[in-house]
Design a protein around this nucleic acid. Structure first.
Lengths: 189, 189
DNA sequence: GTCTATACAGGGATAGAC
DNA sequence: GTCTATCCCTGTATAGAC
């Protein structure tokens, strides 16, 4: 949810997202969500079929917006290492711009609900990374390791840095570049 | 919990661990835990003060055993890159030997309970890694980046591979070595 | 659309008999 | 030590008035 909430429906989604991001899924009760928006608990059901429906809808919106934002940031990149850098930075910057969305996405992906709502944002981005790996290996720039291993050195460190960012650690531009260099070093032949 | 359960108390801990590992924290109700052990729900409270107590105790045991197992595997390593390899492999092999313990540890670390029980297994191992980084930087073998960045290329990819392992992806010895090489490449100057 | 009141279920925990 | 019965609270969801 990178855009501000307009109507009541979106206010509810934003409230749910903030609560989950801050205190986890168990804290996101119908009571706490309604209270944060400033409305009665029962009214929530005029806007969503159920609590799960609200949460799943929130995640769908988030996923779509994040994917589009990253897409936009990554479009122009040229050259293999340039594409690599753009993708890493695009993902980082997009999530860093809305840490609540990031934390919500993380928690949603580990919740039981993610079984219902198949296809996490992560999985969707994986396609881009796999493409990159295939191209790089064809050019002989990236080591011939399985994509499952190489991607373990792309997303997880990035997520780790975002998590640390959520806990107050600020990253300088130089440090971000250092991280991208390290990620690339783990991939290159 | 790398050792088999002997008494009732340990059976309860193992049951809780398995349920959390398989279906997450919400699934670990007093009813489901007791049922899995084959005893009445109320009896659980003769062995533990509360459900949280059971869960926290389970995690403490796990953490202590895991730490010791890794310690044992890492002891003999010599040379900086040898220590690096031994630590990576030691952590991997220890958790791979008990994936239930691994999954439980992951989920516990993200639960609200981990705020109560300060100091996750991860944090404790971090000390070893920081030591390694300091030594390596002094020798000029490891790039002069902040430890927070370098460790993001140590634990998270390792955890990612263990998670994939939990979902059925089998890693060959050669693939493990490939992963260690990639991790080292991300660190070296 | 929103509120108040309420039904209903599930989960944690205790009491007391055996 | 273990079981059965039960209490209480919390959370989801619905009904019906405004």
């Amino acid at each position: 949810m990178l855009t501000p909430a307009a109507n009541t429906r979106e206010k509810l989604m934003r409230a749910a997202m903030d609560i989950v991001a801050a205190d986890g899924f168990p804290a996101a009760t119908t009571a706490s969500i309604a209270e944060r928006v400033g409305m009665a608990e029962g009214t929530l059901y005029r806007h969503f079929k159920s609590k799960d429906d609200l949460l799943i809808e929130t995640y769908r919106r988030l996923k779509a917006e994040v994917f589009e934002a990253i897409q936009a940031r990554t479009q122009a990149a040229a050259g293999l290492q340039g594409r690599f850098r753009a993708l890493w930075l695009g993902m980082y910057a997009t999530y860093a711009a809305d840490m609540q969305a990031f934390a919500f996405g993380q928690r949603f992906g580990e919740s039981a609900l993610s079984k219902t709502e198949g296809g996490t944002a992560h999985e969707r981005l994986m396609g881009h990374v796999k493409q990159l790996i295939g191209d790089g290996q064809a050019e002989g720039l990236i080591k011939p390791a399985p994509a499952e291993i190489l991607s373990a050195f792309f997303f997880p460190p990035l997520v780790s840095m975002l998590k640390q960012g959520a806990q107050g650690r600020e990253w300088s531009q130089a440090e971000i570049e250092l991280a991208i260099d390290s990620a690339w070093a783990s991939w290159s032949v």
